[in-house]
Amino acid sequence: MASRGEIYSTRSDSERRTYFFNVKENRRGDLFLNIVESSKRDEGESFDRHQIMVYEEDIKGFMEELEKAVAIARKRESLTEAASPRKYKKKTSATHPSPRQKTSGNGEAKATNLQRKKVLKLKKKRDQDT
């Protein structure tokens, strides 16, 4: 469903929300990025819809700050995952390392420096608590 001035459109669906990323052109020929978040209301068929528009001259600065924020969110997410107790220990195989593990030339999984630091930090914290 293309609207007037729409150059590109894509979407990302999750359980609760849908995000739309649209590149549009206004009447004067200026490009802008339109980001829309849509979520279903509890009572049924209606939706909450929020949007922001980032104009062409602001995109570079916007993306720099967005990338910083995403990097921090991902770092915190990975720290939370590492600190949370797991009921079942995931088996790793030397021939099939997890996507986060690096491999040596012979296919063995190696922990990255960041993973080692996280483990040491968690061990130190655990030792302090006991």
Rank of each mutant, 00 (worst) to 15 (best):
M1R: 09
A2E: 03
S3D: 05
I7T: 00
S9L: 10
S9I: 11
T10S: 14
T10F: 10
D13A: 10
R16D: 03
R16Y: 14
R16M: 08
R17M: 02
T18H: 03
T18P: 02
T18Q: 09
Y19V: 09
Y19W: 12
F20G: 00
F20T: 02
N22E: 08
V23S: 04
K24L: 15
N26Y: 00
R27A: 10
R28K: 12
G29L: 02
L33V: 08
N34R: 05
I35H: 01
I35M: 05
E37T: 02
S38A: 02
S39M: 03
K40W: 03
R41K: 15
R41E: 08
D42P: 07
E43H: 14
E43W: 07
G44C: 06
E45A: 15
E45H: 12
F47C: 02
D48E: 07
D48T: 11
R49L: 10
M53K: 15
M53T: 08
E57S: 14
E57I: 08
D58Y: 03
I59K: 12
G61R: 13
G61A: 05
F62L: 02
F62A: 02
M63Q: 01
M63Y: 02
E64S: 08
E64G: 04
E64T: 05
E65V: 14
L66V: 04
E67D: 05
K68R: 08
A69G: 02
V70T: 03
V70H: 01
I72W: 07
A73E: 10
K75M: 06
K75S: 06
K75C: 06
R76P: 00
R76G: 01
E77P: 03
E77K: 14
E77W: 13
E77H: 15
S78Y: 12
S78H: 12
S78R: 13
E81V: 10
A82R: 10
A82F: 07
A83E: 05
K87A: 11
K87Y: 09
Y88K: 14
Y88I: 14
K89T: 12
K90N: 07
K91I: 15
K91G: 05
S93N: 12
S93T: 15
A94V: 07
T95H: 05
H96N: 09
Q101A: 13
Q101E: 09
K102R: 14
K102G: 05
S104T: 04
G105F: 11
N106K: 02
N106W: 01
N106Y: 01
G107L: 01
E108D: 06
T112E: 08
T112F: 03
N113V: 11
N113Y: 06
K117A: 15
L120N: 09
L120W: 04
L120K: 13
K121I: 11
K121W: 08
K121L: 14
L122R: 05
L122A: 04
K123E: 11
K125Y: 12
R126L: 15
R126Q: 13
Q128I: 11
T130H: 07
